[in-house]
Amino acid sequence: MDLLDFSDCKLYFEDELPAAAERLISQAAEDYGDPAAELALLRAHLLAPEHLTVLVSLYRYYFYQHRLDDVLVVADHAKRISARHLGIPNDWRLIDESQLGSAAATSFGLLRFYLLALKAESVILLRLGRIAESRDRLSKLAALDSRDHLGAAKLLEVVDEFQSENPAPAEEPSLTLVAA
């Protein structure tokens, strides 16, 4: 399966968005940098809690605000919604190639979205210093994407190279002073 060929599939942003949610997302863009922007996005989320356009908007907002823990929550929510629609397990570790093929037949565009959300999680985990969790996701993606169209194998290679050049320091004993 060619994960780069999505010319003949529906993409997440083509799903109809309630007009009020669309206005709130536009308002958030205008108010960016102001706390009102987040409020507008959260209100849009209340109106369309499972719409991927809303979740991508929240993801981007939190990402650019450097709120990486919030980014992970949104990415996980988007993955769970996608998994449910695709008929694949919520736990990405349980997905195999046959399930991937079935999901592609259901919605190739949504499957690609799901896989990219998993990759996005791995990148955020890297930024948070949670290397092992990131590696697990990247390894799974690399196994599912034998042609590395999503770039997970290449990213995994970079992570491994960096780790070999910069091994984690051994814990050194520390001295703690206590006032008597």
Score class of each variant (00 low, 15 high):
residue 25 I to E: 00
residue 146 S to W: 00
residue 125 L to P: 06
residue 163 Q to E: 15
residue 120 A to V: 03
residue 4 L to C: 13
residue 166 N to W: 11
residue 102 S to K: 01
residue 141 L to W: 05
residue 123 V to N: 01
residue 160 D to N: 14
residue 54 V to H: 00
residue 43 R to I: 12
residue 101 G to F: 04
residue 132 A to T: 01
residue 2 D to I: 08
residue 78 A to M: 03
residue 95 I to C: 09
residue 49 P to A: 06
residue 3 L to H: 05
residue 180 A to F: 09
residue 99 Q to W: 00
residue 47 L to R: 04
residue 132 A to H: 04
residue 128 L to H: 00
residue 10 K to A: 12
residue 85 H to W: 09
residue 16 E to W: 10
residue 105 A to F: 03
residue 35 P to Y: 07
residue 8 D to F: 00
residue 117 A to G: 05
residue 88 I to Y: 05
residue 140 K to T: 07
residue 96 D to R: 00
residue 53 T to M: 03
residue 68 L to G: 14
residue 37 A to F: 11
residue 106 T to Y: 00
residue 177 L to N: 04
residue 110 L to Y: 00
residue 69 D to N: 15
residue 155 L to F: 08
residue 38 E to A: 06
residue 50 E to P: 05
residue 173 P to R: 12
residue 52 L to F: 04
residue 164 S to N: 11
residue 142 A to L: 07
residue 133 E to A: 11
residue 96 D to W: 01
residue 57 S to E: 11
residue 22 E to S: 15
residue 34 D to F: 11
residue 39 L to V: 13
residue 107 S to C: 08
residue 87 G to V: 00
residue 118 L to F: 01
residue 117 A to F: 08
residue 158 V to Q: 07
residue 18 P to M: 11
residue 143 A to Y: 10
residue 22 E to K: 08
residue 129 G to D: 09
residue 111 L to T: 01
residue 154 K to L: 12
residue 70 D to A: 09
residue 128 L to F: 00
residue 118 L to V: 03
residue 144 L to S: 10
residue 62 Y to I: 06
residue 131 I to L: 08
residue 88 I to L: 02
residue 93 R to W: 02
residue 81 I to E: 02
residue 162 F to Y: 13
residue 20 A to C: 10
residue 24 L to G: 07
residue 143 A to V: 15
residue 20 A to F: 09
residue 117 A to T: 09
residue 168 A to D: 03
residue 10 K to V: 12
residue 104 A to T: 07
residue 104 A to M: 03
residue 106 T to Q: 02
residue 111 L to D: 10
residue 20 A to W: 02
residue 84 R to C: 02
residue 147 R to H: 12
residue 47 L to T: 12
residue 24 L to H: 04
residue 21 A to Y: 08
residue 111 L to G: 07
residue 21 A to L: 13
residue 129 G to F: 06
residue 101 G to Q: 07
residue 96 D to G: 05
residue 26 S to D: 04
residue 90 N to H: 10
residue 97 E to L: 00
residue 69 D to W: 01
residue 45 H to I: 10
residue 61 Y to R: 09
residue 109 G to A: 09
